[in-house]
Every structure is written in structure tokens, then in C-alpha cells.
Design a binder for these strands. Structure first.
Lengths: 231, 231
DNA sequence: ACCTGAACACCGTTCAAGT
DNA sequence: ACCTGAACACCGTTCAAGT
């Protein structure tokens, strides 16, 4: 039976640094905190261990290596993507919503998209749930199953790449980003018009639209392609 | 005026390790050799320097940092992409050829695609040439300039992501790759059918087609979208 | 079974010193 | 201007030793 903890022990516990026992979940959550605040490059075995008040070697009792840790983080992030019940009449909007949510979630954890492109095929349980949803939604478009599979691949690949591009300038302030866009624009405008006639003539248009709008456009291209193959 | 080199000096020169003087071009070419044989992770300042018979510090006289070296390598690789003269009647096939060539060239230098997604916007002279070509070809599709710019963005992003995925399993032998596909297939087939009904029912179709076919399909989706917006 | 410190073999980058 | 060795502050992973 349990007995009240004597006050001198309580004090001792409070004074000691908050060191919960290691566990896979704690490690992955800590790694994710590090990712959110300092980016993927900062998620090293040593830094994660440091946050947990231990040494890097201790993590290897729970995780095979750094890549596995990254993949576990990825699946935790994918778990944040809300998945709808398929509504065949609304397949197009449902896909758009789901993919937009994916990009948002990935962007909230800058650098995690890289892990997707480095992993052979995400097989974490949350990744499976999202794949299941994408496949079942897109089936309503009326394509042959083979094409449904290919289309989901293409859409997921595009979304991941967009998320990766989006978080590429993690760490830059808003003014810095705007400044760089201005510089690139100037650079393009000053290019020799005889060698790059189209580029130069399209300068006013090249920097139009934000990431969101460009992404939405690309996604619409893909879905128009799907529609063209329907029925 | 030049005088014949005396034979004892010739011998000395031959016996000395082949150490050409450092130059930006030599550094970038050496780095690219390393990339081709050992992958992007092996392209470290120290290993490149070692191949050149010097120390890492010596490279910093020619290159600002490792990222810049990677970007210079990228532009050299992009230079290998053959660019056609625009033929408005054939814009669709021309885009497909150009993008396919890009993926082939990137796949020949496994890991280089990663650099694209990490770089804000490739502005090397070879990258500009390819962008100019893509824009001018796609203009023939008859979209508003703004949409031409967005579409080129989407197509390039998709191609880069595909190349990245393709070179993700650099280092695996053919049998290893096949073995893994078989394992994933088995794993999917054994999944609980009540939670993943679509996934399980589509197993026979999920592993159909190689990268090339899947890429081609995605590209066709995008181009169908472009066609749907034409004129 | 889990945790640890120390060690090994690596990194990118800087800097004072050389030519 | 270019090159260098040494140093600094990092890495991932292994291993023998502890509990």
C-alpha cells in the first residue's frame, strides 16, 4: 500500500532537476521541441540528450539511430493532420483540404518535410492513416485503381516538396525574406535581354503570388489532370 | 621564351603527386566526383580538400562555405541538361523531354536534388538558361503569363522532388531494392483490413510501375491541367 | 534491461602565420 | 592573394562498465 511521502523527500524531489525517466515517447517529443525551436539540423542525438539531462549514448537504448528518431518524429507530426471521412461527392475539395492541412502541419515543424523525401516510404501508423484517406477519397474521382495510386503518389510528392521549399527559409525574418525577393527581382531585371528574353519580360509576374497561391495553383493543375481522366 | 625542361626536373615532376594548383573550377569538379562516387553526405570540405592533397582551410580562399560549394556543384550539373529551341507547336512534348532530361541528369548525380530544395532560388547561369527555356516553351501553351510562371514553378518542383526520391536509395543494390519492395508489399497486405480497407484492397496496384512510369503520370497530370487552361 | 562516460572517427569554420 | 596547420566547437556511434 502507498504511504505519504515525508516532507524532506518531497523537497529533495522538487529541488532535483525535472528528470523524468527516459522513454521512447519522451525522447521523440523532446526532439520535436528542438525541431520547432531550432530546426532539423539542431536535432542531434547529443542535443536531444542534453535536453533530457543525459548523454547521447543513453538514447540508443530506445532508438536504433538518428534516422529512426527522425522518422518517429515525422510520424508524430503526421499524426497532427486531421483526416476527414470520405464524401464521394466532394472528393476534390476533400483532397485539397487534406493536402493543405498537410502542408500547414509540415510548415509548423520546419525541416520535417526533408525526412519524408529521405525515407523510402513512410510506414508509420499515422502515415498509413493519411495514405488510406487520400486513396479512399481519390477513388471517388472514378479513375482506375492503378491511376488512383499513381495520382496519390504525385499529389503527396508535390505537397511534400512544397512544404520543404516553404520551410527552406526558416530562421529568416519577414523583412529579410522581402529584401531577398526584391534583390532577386532586381537581378532578373538586369539580366541580358538577348540571352534571357522571356525571363526578363516576365519579371513583373515572376514574384507575384505567395507560396500559398503558387501551391494552390499547382495542386489545381494536378486535380484538373485527375478530372480529365475521370469516368 | 621557353626552354626545354631538363630531364631531372621532368622526373621530379612526375614523381610528385599530381597536384594542380587550386582553382574554383578544380574544387567544384573534384566535389562532383566525390558526389558521384560516394553521395552528397561525403562531399565535406575536408574530403574534397583531401582529394586535392590539401587541407579544408585552403578551400575557403575560393568558396565562401559548404553551401556555396553545393550550389556551384548544382549549377555545373544543371549545365548538363540539354535545352531545345522552342517549337510552339510541340510545347507539350518539349516540356516533357526537358523535364525528363532534368530528372535523368539529377539522378546521375545522386543527392544533388536536395540542394535545389534547400537553395532559395537557383540563380546560377545554367539554372537561368533552363528556366528561360521552360518559360518560353510553356508560353506557347497560351496561358496568361502569370499562370505560365506558376506552372513552371509547379513542374520544376515536382521534377526536383521526383529526382530526390529517385536518388534516396542511392547505395542500395538492385536485389536489395526489390527485396524491400517485396517486404513493404507484404507488410501492407497484412495490415488490418478494417482500419485500412482501401490500402489493403489496393495492394496489388500500389507497387505497380517503376519510378519512371509514376513520374511520367504525374507530369501528365500537370500538363493536362495546363492544357485545360489553354487558350 | 537500461543507463553512463569515455573514446573513436569524423564534421565546418576561423585564425594567425607563412609565402 | 593564396595557402597552411592547428585549434575550436561540434557531430554519430560504439563499447566496456555499471545498476
Amino acid at each position: 500500500m502507498s504511504v505519504p511521502v515525508p516532507p524532506w523527500q518531497q523537497r529533495a524531489a522538487r529541488e532535483r532537476p525535472v528528470k523524468r525517466p527516459l522513454s521512447l515517447e519522451l525522447i521523440v517529443r523532446t526532439a520535436l521541441e528542438l525541431l520547432d525551436t531550432e530546426g532539423l539540423d539542431a536535432v542531434s542525438m547529443r542535443k536531444v540528450a542534453q535536453r533530457l539531462g543525459t548523454g547521447a549514448a543513453s538514447l540508443y537504448a530506445h532508438v536504433r539511430n538518428k534516422d529512426e528518431l527522425h522518422e518517429l518524429m515525422l510520424d508524430l507530426v503526421i499524426g497532427e493532420i486531421e483526416v476527414p471521412d470520405p464524401d464521394p461527392a466532394n472528393w476534390r475539395q476533400q483532397i485539397k483540404d487534406l493536402v493543405n492541412r498537410q502542408v500547414e502541419v509540415f510548415s509548423a515543424h520546419p525541416g520535417i518535410a526533408q525526412v519524408v523525401l529521405r525515407t523510402p516510404a513512410p510506414t508509420g501508423s499515422n502515415a498509413l492513416t493519411v495514405t488510406e484517406a487520400m486513396l479512399s477519397i481519390l477513388r471517388a474521382a472514378g479513375l482506375p485503381d492503378r491511376e488512383v495510386a499513381f495520382a496519390v503518389d504525385a499529389i503527396a510528392l508535390f505537397a511534400t516538396a512544397a512544404a520543404m521549399e516553404l520551410s527552406a527559409d526558416f530562421g529568416l525574418g519577414d523583412e529579410q525574406r522581402a529584401e531577398r525577393i526584391r534583390q532577386v527581382e532586381q537581378y532578373f531585371a538586369a539580366l541580358p535581354a538577348d540571352r534571357f528574353p522571356t525571363l526578363v519580360s516576365m519579371v513583373p509576374v515572376l514574384s507575384q503570388g505567395d507560396y500559398r497561391e503558387r501551391f494552390e495553383f499547382g495542386l489545381d493543375l494536378l486535380l484538373d489532370g485527375v478530372t480529365a481522366r475521370s469516368r
